[in-house]
Design a protein around this nucleic acid. Sequence first.
DNA 1: TGTACATCAGTGAACGCGCGTTCACTGATGTAC
DNA 2: TGTACATCAGTGAACGCGCGTTCACTGATGTAC
Lengths: 198, 198
Amino acid sequence: MMKNTRQERQADTRKAILQTALELIAEKGLDKLSLREIARRVGYSPAGLYEYFDSKEDILWTLALEGNDRLRAAAIGISSDLPIKERLTLACLAYVDFAVQNPEHFIIMNSLTTRRASLDEPVSSESSYSVFLKIIEVAIAEGELLVQENFGAEEITYGFWSLIHGMGILRLTQLRSFEADFEKMNRKAIETFITGLQ
Amino acid sequence: MMKNTRQERQADTRKAILQTALELIAEKGLDKLSLREIARRVGYSPAGLYEYFDSKEDILWTLALEGNDRLRAAAIGISSDLPIKERLTLACLAYVDFAVQNPEHFIIMNSLTTRRASLDEPVSSESSYSVFLKIIEVAIAEGELLVQENFGAEEITYGFWSLIHGMGILRLTQLRSFEADFEKMNRKAIETFITGLQ
DNA sequence: TGTACATCAGTGAACGCGCGTTCACTGATGTAC
DNA sequence: TGTACATCAGTGAACGCGCGTTCACTGATGTAC
């Protein structure tokens, strides 16, 4: 059996640290997360982590980027063969689902700020926002969504984003223990918004 | 000139402590809020605060309840003479405005969980949710909003709530430094949702 | 109005805690010849 | 294959910090007679 190389072992340890951080956030919340506890659980001394990450912040940034990639992938992954409105609906549902399935990532991501300062600046293509924007631009081009004055593609995207972001956040905070068929309600609400744009 | 009574002085001090807590949250965030810093700024020793509040948690709970009252008042305050759809729109905008004007209250409130566990349980009449629910019930009764299967008054209210909650949260987090005419965009998005329900 | 006393508002010091980070170090692993 | 050396992965102790809360206390304020 091949021995792991140094690089592979390094990468494994990094993953273990990140995974442990996520677990601790899930258990005690982002604000209670501590390096020392990650180290304890991963079986290292606190100082040991500095071999793998520069600081606690570094760990959180890494997780935020990871979360962003996954969210983007989930939204991109919706089949482009579907009718554009259904594609948009499923992308929206995927956003909420991401929040529910990856609450820790979602919370970390939510604690960061966009670099974009206004509508005049370009959209970062790595953002998940850009994925939604593109879908909506297609829907507009196909005549399935109606543009109004002062309410173009970006504003419409902002509307959807608010809606699904609210759904995600409410699920993780105020409605944490609330039982309901969210999947069905969310779909209906998203469809309602789409209907309002026709 | 009348001297203040003990009670009045007590009440003033309580207010000063709460006010200072809000300022500190605004400056450094909820997670960095400390009793000792409140005391420092208010000119007391840390122990002195225990004359007025039982614990740090007690302070936060007090602020959360205060925030809830204000938010409710803002939503209730919308004139009931207006056409019901405009009333709903303004109530929604008031919700977002509350978040922007009282970010600290909003953040504290957001860190709590509803006591209601499912749609089967009664709605607390002190919640701001109940205000929206009532407006929407009126709109439905007047035939201005259409109920669908599996998408009745509560589900519709949940839809609006998600939308405006998302708007509020995004403003306070990811779009903190983003410049745009949010007022106009928000109104349009809310109207879009209403349109989708007709 | 004066006096004795009770209550009040607030202090200062200490408790025990956990935190992120640094630094000199060491034994294990890998490399070059 | 053996040996000398360099690098690596990780440790243990300490740094200085700020935290929430408790407790015995004290001077100021208010009250009763």
